[in-house]
């Protein structure tokens, strides 16, 4: 096998296992309840998210959230982060929960990750905060 594809495969199947510390930034589209009220609402606000992970505990800050969660890694760099904290949308903010489904790969000091996030929360005046996000990001990690 030629060196290029071999290195690419090695990186692809070499996701970082447990990290003592991770920090990263991601960008993508988030749903701020500004979609058309169809059954599936389309959203296209581009924002960024920053996060810090100490051991398995994650703090993330974005337009949609200030959340504290637990990273559950289960296979080949795939992870789920159940989290709770403050969630926001275009109509207000309030306490809420989040579930993030992601995959980390291409690790060589810095990792690339992609993630999808669901948000639910209680906003003001019986308003439901119902957000979502799809992001690509970069992570720095130290063991």
């Amino acid at each position: 096998m030629r060196a290029g594809p071999a290195i690419l495969l090695l990186l692809l199947f070499n996701p970082n296992p447990a990290h003592a510390f991770r920090a990263g930034v991601a960008g993508g589209a988030v749903g701020l309840s500004n979609g058309h009220p169809n059954a599936a609402d389309f959203r296209s606000v581009n924002t960024y998210k920053g996060h810090l992970t100490f051991s398995d505990y994650d703090i993330s800050l974005a337009t949609t959230q200030l959340l504290f969660g637990r990273v559950l890694e289960f296979k080949s760099g795939a992870y789920i982060i159940p989290a709770a904290g403050l969630v926001l949308d275009s109509n207000g903010s309030g306490p809420g929960i989040s579930a993030t489904f992601g995959w980390t790969a291409f690790c060589l000091g810095v990792c690339v990750y992609v993630e999808f996030q669901n948000l639910l929360g209680a906003g003001p005046n019986r308003h439901l905060v119902s957000g979502s996000a799809a992001r690509f990001g970069l992570d720095y990690s130290s063991k």
Partner: peptide, 24 residues
Amino acid sequence: AWDSVFIPPGLSVMYLTFGHMQSV
């Protein structure tokens, strides 16, 4: 259960735009 579906709306998915539903 907390389920969700992210639906890519054609070529707009290039901008990471998705339709989205959640069910609890």
